[in-house]
Amino acid sequence: MLVEVTVLGLNHGRCPLRGIAASLTDDRRPGYDIYLPGWLAARTKPIFGTLFGARIVVTLARWLIEYRTT
């Protein structure tokens, strides 16, 4: 996940393979380059970014609790 986040960050939030997908079709609706419904494809970064961030917070909290009890 960290590698993917780093790659997206270095490409200003854009998948580096999107250009290849764009060259294969004229369709530019959300999700044209992935197999997801359009409504989900348009919101993947906010949805999964929030889940990823929440998981990091939970993991850090559990590590902190474990560290304090030992």
Rank of each mutant, 00 (worst) to 15 (best):
L2D: 04
L2H: 03
L2Q: 06
E4T: 11
V5A: 15
V5E: 06
T6N: 08
T6Q: 08
T6V: 12
V7H: 00
V7W: 02
L8G: 00
G9A: 14
G9E: 04
G9M: 08
L10Q: 11
L10Y: 06
R14E: 00
P16G: 08
P16H: 05
L17A: 11
R18D: 01
R18N: 02
R18A: 04
G19M: 02
G19K: 04
G19F: 01
I20Q: 02
S23L: 06
S23V: 02
S23Y: 04
L24A: 11
L24M: 10
L24D: 11
T25N: 10
T25A: 08
T25W: 08
T25K: 07
D26P: 03
D27W: 02
R28I: 03
R28Q: 11
R28P: 06
R28A: 12
P30Q: 05
P30H: 01
P30F: 02
P30W: 01
G31E: 02
G31K: 06
G31S: 10
G31Y: 01
G31P: 00
Y32P: 00
Y32C: 05
Y32W: 14
D33C: 09
D33P: 01
D33S: 06
D33T: 02
I34L: 06
Y35Q: 13
Y35S: 10
Y35L: 11
Y35F: 15
P37C: 05
G38Y: 03
G38T: 10
L40F: 08
L40N: 07
A41T: 05
A41E: 01
A41N: 10
A41I: 01
A41W: 01
A42H: 01
A42P: 00
R43Y: 02
R43D: 05
R43N: 09
R43S: 07
T44W: 04
K45P: 08
P46H: 12
P46W: 07
I47Q: 06
F48W: 10
F48P: 01
F48D: 05
F48L: 07
G49C: 05
G49L: 14
T50L: 14
T50E: 03
L51P: 04
L51N: 04
L51W: 11
L51C: 08
F52Y: 07
F52N: 00
G53S: 09
G53D: 07
A54T: 09
I56R: 08
I56K: 09
I56W: 08
I56M: 15
V57E: 07
V58N: 06
V58A: 13
T59D: 12
A61C: 13
R62A: 15
R62D: 02
W63Y: 15
L64T: 15
L64H: 14
L64G: 11
L64W: 14
I65K: 13
I65A: 13
E66I: 11
E66T: 15
Y67L: 10
Y67S: 09
Y67K: 15
R68F: 03
R68T: 10
T69W: 12
T69Q: 15
T70P: 01
T70G: 14
T70Q: 15
T70F: 13
